[in-house]
Design a protein around this nucleic acid. Structure first.
Lengths: 134, 134
DNA sequence: ATACAGACAGACACACTGTCTGTATGCATT
DNA sequence: AATGCATACAGACAGTGTGTCTGTCTGTAT
């Protein structure tokens, strides 16, 4: 599954599939283009064909109009992209990404709370504040 | 400063500049290629020229051999890339990136500790565990 | 039987990007 | 001053990737 070679157009296809769960060529075309023409349909077919070749999509050929389903989740894809970033910029380490993100502005109070809960759940060690209810 | 249009080759130049602080064309070429030829020098010149056009590098023309310095920090660049990821995959929100990274494997005990310290420093609210010494 | 919708193969144009060639010019050494 | 070298600079180029389009074939329904 070649996640790093996913093209921008292919990604758009995947995003529709993530939202819809599965879709036909027509449904994809409708979602992605203003007007559905033969050539737009062909474009979508080419993109799904390439996605299938890359192992990111499966095709159900039972019916005339094939149904496509994603073989990669949104989370998997995001993780892959983050890892690629880390590989290129941080010797493969994820920590710099995390610290950069935490230092970024725009983390609201409720989001901080959410993060604290997440970390407590993930790493239930003794020195983590487990008695949040005081 | 067009950080999103930085090419892979241009990024390699930037990385040397981040390490060295500043460099001449020759120094850059030596760092990036096994053997330094005229054409490789020209390649590096073209890349720095494009980087300058994109506002990511400044050039000191005082001496014959120009000296280049980065106008973007490694951190800035990383943040820009992360934001671009968020824009494309998460409606511009950074939180999904953070949660994905925290859930990723390979976060060691010491790194967790480091993260807890970072969050405490960043968000010194009353409900943050300030008395780590129990 | 006819028409339509979709699959499929192939070609194509366009843009990007790293590379290379050729030329001009500043600087140092003699 | 003359020579030679290192560098800057402009321009061209080829390879590649990518979205798009055309044309053809085939299954399905009316």
């Amino acid at each position: 599954m070649k996640l790093d070679q996913i093209t921008d157009g292919e990604l758009s296809i995947l995003q529709v599939l993530w939202e819809e769960g599965e879709a036909t060529t027509r449904k994809l075309t409708t979602a992605l283009y203003e007007e559905v023409t033969d050539s737009k349909m062909a474009t979508v077919q080419k993109l799904t064909e390439r996605l299938e070749a890359k192992g990111c999509v499966e095709r159900d050929r039972k019916k005339r109009a094939h149904r496509f389903r994603p073989l990669v989740s949104h989370e998997q894809f995001l993780h892959s992209r983050l890892q690629a970033l880390a590989d290129r910029l941080c010797d493969g380490t994820l920590m710099p990404l995390i610290t950069t993100l935490l230092q970024a502005k725009g983390i609201s109070r409720s989001q901080r709370k959410q993060l604290r809960k997440l970390t407590s759940d993930l790493w239930p060690t003794r020195d983590t504040d487990t008695k949040t209810s005081k």
